[in-house]
Design a protein around this nucleic acid. Structure first.
Length: 212
DNA sequence: CTTCAGATGCTCT
DNA sequence: GAGCATCTGAAGA
């Protein structure tokens, strides 16, 4: 299947966040191709959402990409050490996005393991393997996504999202199965928005990091 | 199994 | 100067 087109990201951000669970993400750079299956997402619904970087229409150098067209990567740096990958949603100017919180390895597991822990998949402990990609910072570290990749289109040669990866010779995807819903993580500052059930994750085959 | 502190630097006020 | 859409290893129960 070809990459999901920019128009895919035009609809309701919460619905898209849920729909992205089970989709694939491919990262190609330096002759290396890595692929993951998205296992956990969160919706950040533009100006009305107190947890969103664009709350109240706030527009800065950091979140500028959010105000651009849908279907691009909004990547920012946080906590002095980590990057977070978002998929820009909604029509241009709306400034909504879906945070990709976690994934499962599909292609290039050894390379991702080396970037995370300095050795290949086979040499990881069970815990390290479980925790390879179950967090937004971990995912970006494994895929090599930094602010240098901020603004990349999600249907381009360096980064793309797709319904399946049969085009890369992989078998058709397993069914997504149950998707769980809950409150978003790490947004204690967001008042009543803390309660919104805008986080989605795979119930099986994935261990989400539990946060209070 | 759980909680907890420290790392680390960019961003916004 | 304060805070952050986080992660890790160590220590406790």
């Amino acid at each position: 299947m070809p990459p999901l087109p920019p128009s895919f990201y035009l609809g309701d951000t919460v619905a898209i966040a849920r729909a992205m669970v089970g989709k694939y993400l491919v990262r190609a750079s330096g002759g290396v191709t890595l692929a993951v299956r998205i296992a956990e997402t969160e919706a950040y619904a533009a100006a009305g959402d107190r947890a969103c970087h664009a709350y109240g229409g706030r527009r800065t150098a950091r979140n500028e990409v959010m105000f651009g067209p849908p279907g691009r990567a909004y990547i920012y740096f946080t906590y002095g050490t980590h990057h977070c990958l978002n998929l820009v949603t909604g029509p241009e100017g709306e400034a909504a996005a879906v945070l990709v919180r976690g994934a499962l390895p599909v292609l290039g597991g050894d390379e991702m393991a080396r970037r995370r822990f300095g050795r290949p998949l086979g040499e990881l402990s069970a815990r390290q393997r479980r925790d390879l990609l179950n967090g937004p910072g971990k995912l970006c570290q494994a895929l090599g996504l930094t602010r240098a990749e901020n603004g990349l289109p999600l249907d381009g040669p360096e980064l793309w999202a797709a319904e399946d990866l049969t085009g890369l010779g992989l078998p058709p995807p397993e069914p997504v199965g149950e998707v769980r819903t809950g409150r978003r993580v790490g947004i204690a500052y967001a008042g009543e928005a803390v309660e919104f059930p805008w986080r989605f994750w795979l119930a099986e085959g994935y261990t989400e990091v539990k946060v209070k």
